[in-house]
Nucleic acid binder design. Sequence first.
DNA 1: AGAGTGAAAAGTGTCAACAATTTTATTTAG
DNA 2: CTAAATAAAATTGTTGACACTTTTCACTCT
Lengths: 247, 247
Amino acid sequence: MADTETSPALPTIAALREHSLTAVVQHEIERMILAGELAPGERLNEKAVADTLKVSRGPVREACRALAELGFVQLIPNRGVFIKKLTKADAIEVYDLRAGLTGLASQLLAPMMTAAHLERLEGFVGEMEQAAENADFQSFYSTNLEFHDYIVRATGNGRLIKLYRGLVKEFHLFRTHGLVQRPSLLESNREHRDIVAALKAKDASLAYLVSARHVGNGKARMLSALDDLAETSPARHRRDPEVGRIE
Amino acid sequence: MADTETSPALPTIAALREHSLTAVVQHEIERMILAGELAPGERLNEKAVADTLKVSRGPVREACRALAELGFVQLIPNRGVFIKKLTKADAIEVYDLRAGLTGLASQLLAPMMTAAHLERLEGFVGEMEQAAENADFQSFYSTNLEFHDYIVRATGNGRLIKLYRGLVKEFHLFRTHGLVQRPSLLESNREHRDIVAALKAKDASLAYLVSARHVGNGKARMLSALDDLAETSPARHRRDPEVGRIE
DNA sequence: AGAGTGAAAAGTGTCAACAATTTTATTTAG
DNA sequence: CTAAATAAAATTGTTGACACTTTTCACTCT
């Protein structure tokens, strides 16, 4: 690719002042993984990446160390870095954790709820209602992300925010959200109302319960959708099947 | 049993075969921070560390990137890496998160409880009872760690285990556990019994509740102990006082 | 004396080269 | 023709060197 590229996520000199080269490389690799440009299980060739991004291997290696700690890649000594391959078991782990953190966020927010919070949350729910009726999956999905991120952010717990967002990114990797159905959307949003109601009532225990259960239901929906998928295309049958990559 | 990880302060050639140099360096820096050999807020001189460990700066930089992602150090472009300085607000964050994860672990374990699990857990509680009566803080503290780690491990959720242990390490950094009192030990162990009871009954909701509350009580005990400390030595009064480093 | 100025030193950011290891390709024996 | 052995290529691990930035400190001027 030419130097004067118009591509959005490429390292510019301006970005280099703020974020170091390594940070740019890290973001780029992360983007490539999330975008599916790097297939799960595939080995990441340091030199190839370095050449592509027009940098030396140093920053690439540093970025990979950080990504390994984030759980996006796996480092095997003398073998290289491998894009994490996600299995059904991983999906369950992520869902369970996400349920816990989502519940915790609501639990923490409940006693601190303000009118402004309530307004924002009800706004999101309204938007989702609209999207669900129009069967606008894309819009529903992004507002859904905003809704949950807002609750987590509102707690003000920086570590919780960081962990939660990391989990959402990882969850993104599964691409299982591509197979949600319209009835699920309505059902999901009904649960959102329950969450808002519990928060409005400042009932921490209830807020935890309905929030955690909401994600738990999402997990159940994902699993059943995954089973349906296995039904129709019985080709992919293994001991520990990987999810994601749905054509 | 205990982790296979011994604590050899120096990087041996043998360890280099298995774990890469970077991993050894990372462990060593982590140990130095946890041991207090590197003061919070202090800048980590890459060359100095490299010379001390008899390696070049490359592995040190890679290790620092990983540690930054773990939250132990902060990277500031062109300025260097700084040992994270922990404030009271940080302590609260960690406690809140730990409460959530501890609760989640119990909640997940409850429906899977076996007789073997119960036996181990009751063993730990017995040991702690003994330690509390003897006012053996050291013993109580380590068994307490084992007890909670066992519950988390038993869930089998690798991500939860990793996050939890990271939080415990960070918590370790506060050194606030140095100021627990004997009555706290007995009280704390009473709560452990509640946790075991809820797990034995396979009551997931209750298990979450008592586990999360247990950590919440620990948080309260820490805060009041911290206030007492501020009372006696009113020197350290700032807007956002750092904890830890208790002489 | 104190604030501003500008070299010198120290430290970080990046790179290219070399060493060690793993992977691939080729040859050879059964 | 298969499989072990071996040589060649590719890739990772590590290092020292160099460019650039920040910090330090002596110096000047008001």
